[in-house]
Design a binder for these strands. Sequence first.
DNA 1: GTCTATATAACGATAGAC
DNA 2: GTCTATCGTTATATAGAC
Lengths: 192, 192
Amino acid sequence: MSKKEALTRAAAELLWERGYTGTSPAMILERAHAGQGSMYHHFSGKAELAAAAMEHMSDQLRSRTEDALAGEESAVARVHAFLDLERDPLAGCRMGRLAQDYEIVADDGLRVTTADFFTWLGDRLSAVLAEGVRAGEFRPDTDPDVMASLIMATVQGGYVLARAHQDPAAFRRAVAGAKQVVASLVVSSGQG
Amino acid sequence: MSKKEALTRAAAELLWERGYTGTSPAMILERAHAGQGSMYHHFSGKAELAAAAMEHMSDQLRSRTEDALAGEESAVARVHAFLDLERDPLAGCRMGRLAQDYEIVADDGLRVTTADFFTWLGDRLSAVLAEGVRAGEFRPDTDPDVMASLIMATVQGGYVLARAHQDPAAFRRAVAGAKQVVASLVVSSGQG
DNA sequence: GTCTATATAACGATAGAC
DNA sequence: GTCTATCGTTATATAGAC
């Protein structure tokens, strides 16, 4: 593994664990077993390295998400598969946590990576929901965009609650609510 | 206003704007128009001042929340009033944002203030929902705890999405979803 | 490409005058 | 109670050897 890749991976880990403001170049160098020179040779500074690490994380998340949302099952099964993806509630969302960081939001180059991820995720969820509506699986008055927002927000908010309580159950309870809501949209379930 | 109060207010503002890690004592002193001595006379350090500021914010939020959830209206009206409270989506939640901060979660004394707030909020929402169920307003299979979690998570996640996109509409879309869900629980609406 | 040495500023806390 | 001066440490970046 090149030093550049080691730096990117170490930065990704630390951004996930401690956020952007809470991560220093020195921490990254130590975890990557690299010296100052390597970092400033490959990147202009902390922000550019963080941008690379965020792209890396975004790609990972998209890949994992697509595994759940693609496939031949019913729309409700695929949305449930997304909600049931293995997650670490106490760690938080790699993208969502960073969107709460002041310096990330203040730097458009960094923020846009999080925005693009959630745009992509919302579009994918909305598309699956719309498929379900067209197929007669979901009630025709289902609003795919609003429901996609609700699903994303529930997951993100679930992380917040779990971290506040330091209890993964808080995350699971919120996601359980989202699953109930999705299930309630299914026509054959008789809205009961 | 005493220096102690000025410091507490300034710290509360900065914690909201920049989080715990992103706020330095120097920033607080400048905004409070106070010197180092004032801060270290009244508080043992940054953590203790932050704790006081967080208690202050928690009290504010509880008061505002109670205004929406109390009253004589129907349960659905009160939950909708909570969801419709005036918020600044781009600023984020005073408590929720801090729960994403590494140093807050690492310091139990600080984290517990956020946990207590969400415990209180969840209990209040759950109580209102349970009232609605008992009154025959909500469907009898409504799970108040799960729905309270869903509502809290939607608001918290809405903040995350709005900050990522730098667009308050992302918050409003998620909250609109939560309102639809709550409305769908009402018996007289015919689940349609 | 990678390293260490160094620089400047900010961080968080303490000392001690008034 | 409030202030300024100062301390030791860390954050972020640059310089320059290899």
